[in-house]
Amino acid sequence: MYGIVNQAIQGLVTEQFGEETWQKVKEKSKVNIDTFFNNESYEDKVTYDLAGAAADVLGIPLSEVLIAFGEYWVLKTGMKNYGSLMKSGGGNLKEFLINLPNFHSRVMLIYPNLTPPEFRVSNVDENSLQLHYYSQREGLADFVVGLLQGLGKMFETAITIDLIKSRSEGFDHEICSVHW
């Protein structure tokens, strides 16, 4: 994944637990890279190793790391680096989610070698919808849950998220039922 993703893990750990903890995470992960460059591609393994090491060092389950990372991604990385892009995604949570399938197509203009996630929305109602998540990558369902929580906070909208289908139980993609 692009360096911005690894930068964000570094930012999350450093801001919330300090520089020393980040050094421990890096050591534990055996990732031997001094500086992550925003728009350089790194192997996915680097990201997974960093997230796994963060869980070990902090003594929390990986799912919690991924959820925290999702929130951080929207509220810090997204808003700080690409605030206008985030805001142009929609005027409220519902609009943003309906536009989500096109969102990374725009991001691909910034990161041409992106391997983006694929989203689809269905069952759109006044206060709920179902978000379908398709990906070539494994194990990021909790990241999506964290991202959605972050979007709820960004739009100051209370939301609940239920993962109603997932690949870990044999379905071919994830479905999140989102209520607000």
Binding site: P101, S105, R120, Y134, H173
Partner: peptide, 9 residues
């Protein structure tokens, strides 16, 4: 042609 995006759905 082949669909790249969307591709799964």
């Amino acid at each position: 042609f082949r669909f790249i995006r969307p591709s799964f759905s």
